[in-house]
Every structure is written in structure tokens, then in C-alpha cells.
Design a protein around this nucleic acid. Structure first.
Lengths: 238, 238
DNA sequence: CGAATGCTTGAAGCTTATCAAAGCTGGTGG
DNA sequence: CCACCAGCTTTGATAAGCTTCAAGCATTCG
């Protein structure tokens, strides 16, 4: 996590120490294991060491909407610190290693490091921004555009944490049902859409590996702007 | 704004003073006036004194997605403080009075009041939570459910700032095209859907006034949970 | 009063969902 | 090491929900 945050702003040694304290315990989780259940009172947060997680919401009739994906280096779920009760389920999409820490573990950080506080605030805003992008995608994009969009976003996100393979391809640990629930589609139509995207020569697939062949064309197709740039100029110095 | 934030946690006098400083200037804006344009470097933020605003994203071919609504007491756009360039347009849905202040106006607040910082952080998380709810609505709800959802959310939001009329009705300053762009629908279908909702006896309409007749039934219909509860127990004391 | 804007209603069409069945793949136990 | 099985993906046929297009009506404003 120090590595991830350090990309956005220089950190003092004391800041690094505080962050490292959050990662001192490790716990392993199996694929599909549920980490947090909707309605629970949240006492613990987690730093993701490895693996993918997702938060999601279930409706009475079985409909499901995936809300967020958590990658290595993320905090699950930083937002929950401010809420009394958790509003969504969170589970492992792959086997994962998490570093649990009590909610109060962030307290010293808020009281002693304005700079680190600003940084966490910025991370929350950034996440916010990706949610807005997805609202736009689900609300106004065709299925074809939505899938392109998701693939680009994942590639970008993985690139940032060195999760891409040498040739730029990446393993897609989501099932097509997961992708459908993330984008407001059905698994059947995701399958048909991905086949079309592949037939059009925009991507190549091999098992669950995906390689984006024409990132430029795909980005134009779905108005993909990449990540917002964090402005650290206003951060308190210490 | 002091009133709005004070609802979530007790504020020290010094905190109130800092907040009040943000609201010392006032400027009037006309309906449809654009406050912030996509791509601009953000130097100024605003406290909404009166009126409604919305941020939105335009696609090349004219499609539009409304992203957020801003009500009196909100900061437009708190998120932008952390971003170098603005990613969306923001405009007035009604005539409005805003209090502009420079981005740097928040700096003393971050450096001198951990408690206020935590509160702003919480507000951001809370907004985050409503975005997740809307992702769920757009991704998995039918048009009928989406419109019910939006009306409930607005009523709740207005209730919190005493914006409801005596009989519980409220003026809806959005056009049906706005509602459509907020929910990922078309203006035509919003019209048909609202007529159905009214025919079903869930709401009553008179011009642009709306009254929710059966809030309970509507809430069950669309799994409406109300607002998340903010946990202020972890806030630094001063 | 005329023009502009927004709302309503109907008909036709398209994207996506639903249902169903068959093919593929990776993991497990014999 | 192979066969089996469960879960995932693919493909096709049909259906539903929403969009698009178009015209008429209502309201507001200069």
C-alpha cells in the first residue's frame, strides 16, 4: 500500500510507518469467501495484499449488482469507516490474502498526519470518479461500449499495480456473470458481445486471458479518458 | 452549511467560524447557467445557498448522463479539490445563489481541524454511497422501479433540508429529460412511467409538484433503504 | 398573441433479456 | 493417467422492455 500511495505524493517516514502498521497481520481467504455481510457493524477493515474482491448488492428476487472491485493495495472498504452499518456484501473473486486491522487503526493517521489524511481523502474522491464513469457507462452506453470500457479500465488499473503480463495481456478472474452484474447486462449477452469485440479484432482471448489489440480505437469508441489526475499541491506538508 | 454538517456531529466554535468564512461571498446565477466546464482547471468551489445544480457528462453524439444533484448546503464540487482537472460540466437546474471560495479556502480546515476533516471525509463517503445506490438502480432496476427510487431519494434529501411542503409534497425542478438522463432512460419513457405510477396511486401530480402517497409501498418496490448512518464515534475530538 | 419549451400519446423497431441446449474446461477421485 | 463432473461459455430462437419517430396538446414568457 505504501507503494501505491507513494505514487501520488511523497510520504514522510512516519507516514510510511503508520501505513505499514496496518499491514502487519495477514490472513488467507478462499475464492468466493464472504468477507463482509450486508447490515453488519463494521469493526475491521482490510488491506488487500493479493487477489481480487468485489462488493455487491442483492435484491430480493435474486438480481445482483456488482458495485466495486478491489485490487491489491486497496483498502476494503475505506468508505465503511464512516458508516455505522455496512450496506453491501463483499466477497473474494479469487483466493486472496488480506491484512485485517481494526477501524480504530486509522485514527492516529487522521489525528497525526494531515498529509496522509488528504491522501486518503483523495483516494476516496478518485474512487468516486470511477463510480461516476461507470454510471455514465451503465446509463448511456450500449453493451458493446460497456464491455470495451470495462476491459480498458481493468487494463489501466492492473497496469498501475504491475499486474499486466509482458505482452500487455491480463488474466480476467471474473466470470461473464460477474461482468454482466457489473455492467447491468446478462451473462448471455456478455458472451455474445465479447465474441463480437473479438471478431472485430479489438481484443484477443485465450481461456480467461485477454489482450487488448487496439487500445486507441477502443478508447475512442467509449470516450475512455483514463484516470483522473490527483492534485497534491494543496496537501498539508506534514 | 453549518446547519447541515452540525446534524452529523457537534462542531466547535472555531469550526463554525471556518465554515462560515467559506460562505461570506454570494453570487447569483440564472437557470441553465454553466458553472464549471469539463476540462477546466478548478480554482474555485461553491457552497450552494439556494437552488439546484447538476453535474453531467456529454458524449460526442449528444448522449448525456446526469451524474450528481447538488442541493442547498452542499459543496460544489468538494470532490474537485483533489483533482487537477474537472471531468464534468456542472450547471444550474434552477436559478441559484452560490458562495464561491478559492480551493485553498479548505486548507486551514484540513490542517487545523481533524474533526472537520473527518466530517468532510464522511460527507464524501456518504455521497459515494448514494452513487452506489444509483449504480444499482440503473444497472438492475426496471424503469418503474428507477423512477420510484429517484422520487423517494429526492423526498428524503429535501426532507433533510426542510425542503418539503407542509403536506409532504415537493416541487420537482427537473424536466423529464433531466430525469431520463439521470436514470438512463428517455424522456418519452419517463413520461409514460410516471403516468403509470400515478395511475397506480403511488403518487399524485399537479404541474411540477409531486406528492408521494404510499411511501411504504414504493420503498419496498425498489428496495429503498434510506440514507446510510454516519458513524462519528471515531472522529478526533478537536 | 406567437414562439418556445416541455409533456403526452401512439406506432414501429431495435437492443437486450429469457429460455434452452450443447460444448468446453479445469479440477477431482478412482 | 483417464474419466467424470460441475461450472462456465457459446449459440440459437423467441420475447419483452425500452427507444425512436412523429404529432398534438399544455404552459410559460416575451
Amino acid at each position: 500500500m505504501v507503494a501505491k500511495l507513494g505514487r501520488f505524493a511523497a510520504l514522510a517516514e512516519s507516514d510510511k510507518t503508520m501505513l505499514a502498521a496496518l499491514e502487519k497481520d495477514e490472513r488467507e481467504y478462499r475464492k468466493d469467501e464472504v468477507i463482509v455481510q450486508c447490515g453488519e457493524t463494521v469493526k475491521e477493515l482490510f488491506v488487500v495484499k493479493s487477489g481480487w474482491l468485489a462488493s455487491y448488492s442483492l435484491l430480493d428476487d435474486g438480481r445482483r449488482q456488482l458495485l466495486r472491485l478491489f485490487y491489491p493495495g486497496d483498502i476494503v472498504d475505506l468508505s465503511e469507516i464512516a458508516l455505522l452499518r455496512c450496506r453491501h456484501d463483499i466477497k473474494c473473486l479469487t483466493a486472496a490474502v488480506l491484512c485485517p486491522f481494526p477501524k480504530s487503526g486509522l485514527e492516529p493517521l487522521f489525528t497525526h498526519s494531515p498529509r496522509l489524511t488528504a491522501l486518503l481523502f483523495s483516494m476516496t474522491v478518485r474512487e468516486n470518479s470511477t463510480l461516476l464513469d461507470r454510471i455514465r457507462a451503465i446509463g448511456r452506453f450500449s453493451a458493446y461500449e460497456r464491455v470495451c470500457y470495462l476491459l480498458l479500465e481493468m487494463a489501466l488499473r492492473l497496469h498501475a499495480i504491475d499486474g499486466l503480463q509482458a505482452d500487455g495481456a491480463f488474466r480476467l478472474p471474473l466470470t461473464q456473470s460477474d461482468i454482466a452484474d457489473l455492467l447491468g447486462l446478462t451473462n448471455v449477452y456478455v458472451s455474445k458481445t465479447m465474441s463480437r469485440i473479438e471478431a472485430d479484432g479489438l481484443i484477443a482471448r485465450d481461456g480467461n486471458r485477454v489482450k487488448i489489440l487496439k487500445p486507441q480505437a477502443m478508447a475512442e469508441l467509449c470516450n475512455f479518458n483514463g484516470d483522473p489526475t490527483i492534485d497534491s499541491s494543496w496537501f498539508p506538508v506534514h
